[in-house]
Computed example of a mutant assay.
Amino acid sequence: NYCLQRNIGGFMEELIEVIQGLKQPGCIDYIQLGSAIVSVIASIIAVFVAIRVLKTIAENQNKIALFEKRYELFQFYRKCQSFLYAIKRDKTIEEIRNSCSTIFEIDCKNTNIKGILILLSKFENASYQIHFLFPKIKEEDARKLYLALYYFILQIVKSEVYDINDVEDNKKDFILKMESFKSNYEDVIITQLKLGDINDN
């Protein structure tokens, strides 16, 4: 132990002499230089970490914004689906109007044509957006579904005077387009309605 202490003591004395020698004129202060290098490296690492954190936050914000947009269209799709099931059950024009009013929040009895067209324009915007937010959905198919819904709703609300055959034709057309859309794209919509799927093809 005594020898070890002497060796340690001697080493410390030599280390102190070396450090003091660095303070002499013309000597490079390696400790200060080393500290400066470590400081620069630490600053660079901090910058890279900050950039990475900001990039992660931006990516997460993009995913959340995408999810919110997709969810809006998902809700519209669900309304179309509910309307499909309702009109399959409905037998009279009044029952269809009631279903339309309940599902799409359109007062089919009291809203004038101008008001109906304004409400339907929102559906049109949804049909334009769906292809971009759900890339696997064909724009043409989304457009066909919108037009079928558009003409059917106009047919049941435009006046008290209507041709039941026209109503039935438009009803059948919407059912056909909606069932086709549901068959082709329901799995796509549900699968892509996730925060992680930001780059779907």
Rank of each mutant, 00 (worst) to 15 (best):
T92P: 01
L33P: 04
L22F: 13
S159V: 04
A142Q: 02
E72M: 03
E17T: 15
K136M: 12
D173L: 15
V18R: 14
G196N: 08
I130F: 01
I164W: 12
I87D: 01
F76P: 00
S159Y: 03
I31Q: 12
I57E: 10
E105A: 13
N7P: 00
E105D: 15
L149S: 05
Q81C: 09
T191P: 00
I198L: 08
N125V: 00
I118R: 03
K91E: 13
G115P: 11
S43A: 11
D90A: 14
Y128C: 03
I153A: 02
N170E: 11
K109Y: 14
R70N: 08
L154D: 01
V161D: 09
S82Y: 02
N125W: 03
I28V: 10
N112Y: 05
D163R: 08
N170M: 11
F174I: 10
D141M: 07
L145E: 12
I8H: 09
N184E: 03
D141G: 00
L133C: 05
D107S: 07
N170K: 09
E14T: 13
C27P: 00
A126L: 07
G9Y: 06
Y151P: 04
G26T: 00
N110C: 05
N112K: 13
V53F: 04
L133P: 00
N98A: 07
I156R: 02
I198T: 04
S99M: 06
N201T: 09
V18I: 13
I16E: 05
V18Q: 04
R97Y: 14
K122W: 12
F134I: 15
K109Q: 10
G10K: 14
L154C: 08
N170W: 10
A126D: 08
H131C: 06
K138W: 03
V161Y: 04
A58F: 03
E72L: 02
Q155T: 15
N125F: 06
F174V: 13
I41K: 12
F152D: 04
F104L: 12
I96W: 07
E59D: 04
L84C: 11
M12D: 06
A142E: 01
L73N: 03
F132N: 15
L133K: 13
Q24R: 14
Y146S: 01
